[in-house]
Design a protein around this nucleic acid. Structure first.
Lengths: 222, 222
DNA sequence: ATGTGTGAAGAGCTTCACAGCC
DNA sequence: GGCTGTGAAGCTCTTCACACAT
């Protein structure tokens, strides 16, 4: 056989950086840039230019020598690669502080992800408008999730309410959940749950923003 | 010389996992566990036991052979390593949805990080209690930051207000900022700023909770 | 028997350096 | 000259496997 196909896995670090590139490219596009070089992008993202070229090379020969990369093509590629497609329908359950923050953000930035429904069980919240969506009654969760064809749920409810919500979502056909409730949910099989401990995530960000030179090297007995 | 010291850098991946361990260990401690083996911890964190042992070994010989690791000692070690010390004083500026969510979380979980002051410029918000703190007038930011000895600021204000707040914080002696405002802040020298695009962070979490088997391998022309 | 600590092997990722194209 | 694409080298992190401690 003449054509010898090589299969090459995409490093997960590459996937991680795709998010960073996307953010930078959205800005570049807004500022009217048609093309960008790996050097320019490297400066913005604080990375080495060659890793950017290597990263993009996993997805084809996207650049033009002597010119650079087309900003819009890159955005298109990353959008499809990261499933930033607005076609993926997401519901938020629990319209407390976190729920509201997410809804507000989702409305502003259609680039990232799209929330199409909001639920809460508190009578005072039901019917109210938040971030362009009307809060629906959580008791109708299963039915609404089915009719709307929702694929993912974001849990921002108190711990006590979480198991019930997970069950309703599962019955409604949802296969992935991102939960802000303290972990250890009894997860139905074939349901993919990621638990986020907001305080840990904050601690993580804070740690990196402290710029700890202390952690570069450390003594150890021989 | 008899004692030959070896210096070994701590991988940044190790630091990243420390947050994961911490979260698991807090749970284990609450459930009354005195010790934990690398095997048990590996199961909880979905990791290989040997990497856990290697990770901990960077910080000394913390375990007992045949027994395991002492949960409290590990917590103590990680807490100091990650500067989860409540001594680090943090102020939140901007008491919108994100600000409120952070304050609420900080109050519930003193494990992670400690927010000691909240500021906003809106008259309706000033004086109100949120998550145990009274919202103060943002015009007094510089002075209050100085007197309280605040080391870090979390920006959760609209883009337009951000530059002014950064300036006030800098004048007050703050050296690190975590910003939720859209990036490109004119950062004063020796000020460490991390910009968080909430929608990107969400997209990242969503991506991983989708369980994308698609991304494991990919064809490329030879 | 149980479970740590760690050198050595292995896997994976990044950087270099340069051929090739605009 | 400017810039990409990519083998090869270099580096870092992970896994293995087993000596050693309780």
């Amino acid at each position: 056989m003449k054509y010898n196909m090589k299969y090459k896995a995409i490093p997960k670090e590459t996937i991680g950086r795709l998010f960073t590139y996307f953010r930078a490219l959205v800005c570049l596009s807004r500022e009217g840039n048609k093309t960008v070089s790996s050097y320019k992008l490297a400066e913005i993202c604080q990375l080495n230019p060659s890793i950017i070229r290597k990263d993009f090379s996993y997805f084809g020969e996207l650049g033009k020598r002597g010119v650079g990369y087309n900003v819009e093509s890159l955005l298109l590629m990353i959008r499809s690669e990261l499933k930033l497609d607005p076609a993926i329908k997401i519901a938020v359950v629990g319209i407390g502080n976190i729920g509201k923050a997410l809804l507000a953000y989702s409305g502003f930035k259609p680039d990232g992800f799209r929330i199409v429904a909001a639920f809460d069980s508190h009578p005072k919240k039901i019917g109210k408008k938040v971030g362009g969506l009307t809060v629906e009654n959580a008791s109708k969760l299963e039915k609404r999730v089915k009719t709307l064809g929702i694929q993912m749920g974001i849990l921002a409810v108190p711990e006590s309410a979480a198991p019930q919500v997970v069950l309703s979502l599962a019955k409604g056909g949802v296969k992935a959940i991102l939960s802000f409730a303290p972990c250890q949910l009894t997860t139905p099989k074939d349901m993919n749950v990621i638990c986020v401990d907001l305080s840990m995530e904050m601690a993580r960000l804070l740690y990196y923003s402290m710029g700890q030179k202390l952690h570069k090297a450390r003594a150890r007995k021989s």
